[in-house]
Nucleic acid binder design. Structure first.
Lengths: 176, 176
DNA sequence: AAATTTTGTTTGACATATCAAACAGATAGG
DNA sequence: CCTATCTGTTTGATATGTCAAACAAAATTT
């Protein structure tokens, strides 16, 4: 029962993830180079915080430093940033296209979990999307039926303190 | 671009989530009551940590305290714990049953994100599961075809630093 | 060239979450 | 009853991630 500790065993934290993404985004038109101030503005935190955070990010070899104090993603940092973008994008597309979740909520949720998803999960999600959004008749039919199905059972709540274990046991059994 | 700060705006942190879940689990056969030592053992952290963590959890009204220093989930704490279980269970079932992810990995991933998923996401996931695992012919057919589809494109990588944006742009466009 | 603003760093503070170690009270064993 | 263990709390430490404020160096404006 110590699976829960895996939460702190990720390649990057949420904060580090967004520092890397900010650098990638800001450097897009400057050969990858970004400045502390711009990162701070992008993330809406102080320059001091960015300065401190970059210390360990540099030490871990995720960014390289300029002679003019600019920073750029290292190959490793770039690999991580791309992985994060791919995971977020795949999850958001799944939420939007398959589950029909509003863009705002899909953005928030996918942003929260992008750095926590395993590679296998991301890969399989992409497979599912490629299939469900393809023009394969089985996929088209299933998506159509699912949209109907959703409308028919809109009151199915997640878990409004149903002291009888609601849907939990039913699904837990299936996930064994 | 400050969506990323929503990460810290959840009802509970990962740590608090697991304190609540541990109390719920341990109290199962004791009318809901659990002891600090048992929580510490369950979570594999020290009694001191649990003692400190429970201070704020109590202050927030998520647990009630005994005259014999035992703790029990309040109605609010119970509601949160149930929500967490439902979200984890739904996500794990989706990973296992639909995506075909191994149990270990499904456990780790769903445990990491259970407290970060929005209610809408959980509800829609349950709808999707209810549909895809039903005996509706369209669902049965789609699942069969998807399993085949997975085998046919096993080399589709998530994002191995494809400097050409790999699948990111394709999916991002779909998720707009 | 001088004045002003922007930039990056450092410092001291706070919040969360953990540890080890010390301690006092409760429980249990002999 | 007395000792030994278990229990819960507290204290001091560490790590991350944030802030505000002060500062010096660089860049920009005038």
């Amino acid at each position: 029962m110590e699976t829960w500790k895996e939460f702190d065993a990720n390649e990057v934290t949420h904060s580090v993830a967004h520092h890397l993404l900010a650098i990638h985004e800001l450097g897009r038109e400057y050969g990858g180079w970004a400045r502390v101030s711009d990162i701070a503005r992008q993330l809406d935190i102080t320059r001091g915080s960015v300065s401190i955070n970059l210390r360990s990010i540099k030490a871990r070899g995720l960014v390289a430093e300029d002679d003019r104090r600019q920073v750029k993603l290292s190959p490793k940092g770039l690999r991580i940033a791309h992985g994060l973008m791919a995971k977020k994008t795949a999850m958001k597309a799944f939420m939007r296209q398959v589950l029909g979740i509003a863009e705002d909520e899909a953005d928030v949720d996918s942003c929260k979990i992008e750095h926590l998803l395993g590679d296998v999960m991301a890969e399989r999600l992409v497979h599912l999307l490629r299939f469900l959004l393809s023009d394969d008749p089985a996929a088209v039919d299933a998506m159509k039926r699912f949209r109907q199905f959703k409308k028919e059972c809109p009151e199915s709540k997640t878990c409004p303190v149903c002291d009888g274990q609601c849907l939990i046991e039913e699904l837990a059994a299936a996930a064994k």
